[in-house]
Design a protein around this nucleic acid. Sequence first.
DNA 1: TACCGAGTTGCACAATTCTTCAACTTGATA
DNA 2: TATCAAGTTGAAGAATTGTGCAACTCGGTA
Lengths: 113, 113
Amino acid sequence: MPVPLYQAKADFFRTLGHPVRIQVLELLREGPRPVRDLLTEIEIEASSLSQQLAVLRRAGIVNATRDGATVVYELSSPDLAHLLVDARRILTDMLAGQGELLAELRAEGRKVG
Amino acid sequence: MPVPLYQAKADFFRTLGHPVRIQVLELLREGPRPVRDLLTEIEIEASSLSQQLAVLRRAGIVNATRDGATVVYELSSPDLAHLLVDARRILTDMLAGQGELLAELRAEGRKVG
DNA sequence: TACCGAGTTGCACAATTCTTCAACTTGATA
DNA sequence: TATCAAGTTGAAGAATTGTGCAACTCGGTA
């Protein structure tokens, strides 16, 4: 693997490594959403959400477009959805036999695919 | 998404978010390997590699088994390979038109799938 | 037992990242 | 223009991670 590449991959994964950012991405998987919408589903202050959206934006993982007074976010790559599904599968493997978290992962799997 | 789940996902991704750990995982994708082997391919001191292997072990992402005097590591879930491939695809999307990193990603894509 | 090679661990300091709050921008409305 | 709602930004201190080195454990071997 060429030198800067594993660094880019590491940066990418690190960007995903935050609970609020994960919640945002899971919501955006279903399609573009205004910030106001995200704010009602994620319990957090507006400025904190904005901080995390900025991290995702700077990393190029989401795109923001302004529509009048509201800002709408969307995933910049549809493959993000695959990645999140893979991650769930891996967590299922890893947590096999480790209790309630496993049950939740399975329940989500039924809904999502 | 239930409360602790996005936290588990975030922790998982954060664990992947380090250049040495990415290199290790990419090498282990091809199969189990002794530490000595990893050490010759990754330019780093033994103790630093050990630190990062410990992070992956604690997260349950790799498993270590002792074979005499050498320790062999392997991925704990084969789906990790899919995830890394998805990640490459996403980076390709995101970096489209951004120069040399893109060329490297494509070259790797030809080799790997 | 003594010794060496293979790995691991603990620790202290450096570097990043998070969190929170106040201040600011932009668009809509009166 | 004044004002309000929607988001964003900047900055400081707190918390988490990363780095490098010395010390340690465990097998194998003389």
